[in-house]
Design a protein around this nucleic acid. Structure first.
Lengths: 143, 143
DNA sequence: GCCATAATCAACTGTATGGTTGATTATCAA
DNA sequence: TTGATAATCAACCATACAGTTGATTATGGC
């Protein structure tokens, strides 16, 4: 949760920019958003995801690849099956961007962050989600 | 800030879906994000915005039209000039979506909201931003 | 080994998008 | 009235993208 403490950081890396392109354009498709929704809380196989849609399995596979490239989904292949897992880290980065560029929302968000700092200093640091590693806002960047 | 209190609302309208398509795909372009950044805090003419970029004014005008269609920018034309103003409402809707579908971040967000409710009940209600009406999470929807 | 299954790869199609240049509209100033 | 300016419209081009169908790879069960 360190990123929450750096909300006022206005540095602008070209790296982040490229990542934001991928994340926002990944989120711009309703099918991909539906895939993310289905992956929330449980991991699924490609075929399990595809069963929910009318388009071909190949098309769904391509959508998943887009989500993987954006860092929103991790795919772990064991044998012939490929298990898909949500990674909320880049989404948090996107949310930070949304809140950062707008002074109004930044004020609100900063205020909220300070409030959390004050009344719940213990909870904000450790093991926020059971059974799954906490999403790392800047981590797992490949290439 | 009422929308923050309804984060757990899982209703899914096709209307919102179309809006999210437009908002996220508008945000997926680095030039459009740069335009929004420049519009944060001050209104600008199309030509003033275009001066900051190397692409043609026509291209910038098209980018602005995309932002207008997504509801992120309001354009008020007086005479031959056209003043562009940021509207953060749809961005808040997008942020809500980002936080809603992920249980983890929803927990964090709800916790923050409760914290705000507890320690700053007065500040959260009035005049959050000087010189400009506060963005309305659901408001200003045209058509 | 044999075959069904899970998933990706490959090639192709139609459409959307981002950019260009050139023309057009409308307004302001002289 | 004439001309410069602000902005959009229009046509065009290249590329990217979402979808299809068909082939391929690799694994698991019998």
């Amino acid at each position: 949760m360190r990123a929450q403490l750096r909300l006022a950081d206005q540095t602008h890396r070209a790296d982040d920019d490229a990542r934001l392109n991928e994340v926002f354009s990944a989120l711009a498709d309703p099918i991909r958003r539906a895939i993310l929704r289905r992956l929330d809380g449980r991991d699924l196989l490609v075929s399990e995801i595809a069963a929910a849609f009318t388009i071909s399995l190949q098309a769904v596979s391509k959508h998943i690849q887009v989500l993987v490239r954006a860092g929103l989904v991790n795919q772990e292949r064991t044998g012939r099956i490929s298990r898909c897992r949500l990674d909320a880290g880049p989404i948090f980065e996107a949310a930070v961007w949304l809140n950062r560029y707008s002074k109004y929302w930044q004020e609100q968000f900063d205020l909220l962050a300070v409030a959390l700092e004050d009344i719940a200093p213990a909870r904000k640091r450790k093991s926020p989600r059971a059974g799954r590693p906490a999403p790392r806002p800047g981590g797992d960047r490949r290439k």
